[in-house]
């Protein structure tokens, strides 16, 4: 067991951490694109009329589109001259979720802004941060199309470990590696929300 942990610590952890950087990069691209599209949709939705209805329908469809299927759709249905990298495919597959989330949160924030409650509108920021962490976790779907992210590193290592016990140790390290930044992120989120709550009175 000690030998296994030593091996995982020295050989596997650098690969896992390098893979997790890819998870954060994918989530960063997805939230960036989500902000760009989502805020436009939120603004259009609030304007109403034909454009507003179209935006509302688009948001409904994007909410319902399963990320994993969108990823395979992008991978297989795009014309060959539009080939994109695996990591970008995952980021784009997360776009419907992130754009719909940003649009929903954006509609709330814009309504608060219009009613003069700027501080309530600021809740938009922790919401976006929450979405970012969800996207980090969801970006692990890239393992299914061979993107070299954190879960891919774990799965490659697991294939070389025949004993279930050894694999479970590896998986525990994987869960801790994803869980620690996530829980720290959520703790920060709670702190920000508490501060905002105090400011809002």
């Amino acid at each position: 067991m000690i030998a296994l942990v030593e091996h995982l610590w020295s050989d596997f952890m650098p690969l896992l951490l390098a893979g997790m950087v890819v998870n954060f990069e994918i989530a960063g691209v997805a939230i960036g694109l989500g902000l760009a599209f989502g805020l436009v949709l939120a603004y259009a939705h609030l304007r109403g009329g034909l454009l507003g209805n179209a935006a509302a329908s688009a948001i409904t469809l994007m909410r319902a589109a399963p990320t994993f299927v969108v990823m395979f759709f992008l991978l297989n249905a795009l014309p060959r001259n539009m080939s994109i990298s695996g990591a970008m495919t995952v980021a784009l597959s997360l776009l419907p979720y992130s754009a719909a989330f940003v649009a929903d949160s954006g509609v709330d924030a814009l309504r608060h802004l219009r009613s003069g409650s700027a501080l309530a509108a600021l809740q938009f920021l922790p919401n976006v941060m929450r979405a970012f962490f969800v996207l980090v976790m969801s970006s692990s779907a890239g393992a299914a199309i061979g993107v070299g992210e954190g879960i891919t590193a774990i799965l490659h290592e697991a294939e070389l470990l025949p004993a279930l016990g050894d694999r479970l140790v590896l998986f525990a390290i994987g869960v801790a590696s994803f869980g620690i930044p996530l829980q720290l992120g959520f703790a920060l989120l709670r702190l920000i929300q508490r501060r905002l709550g105090l400011l809002l009175g």
Binding site: A144, I154, V175, I180, Q183
Partner: peptide
Amino acid sequence: VLLQSSPIVLTLVVASA
């Protein structure tokens, strides 16, 4: 906390193993 900390793909892989 454990389940929230695990990406869904990893949860599936652990369950599968």
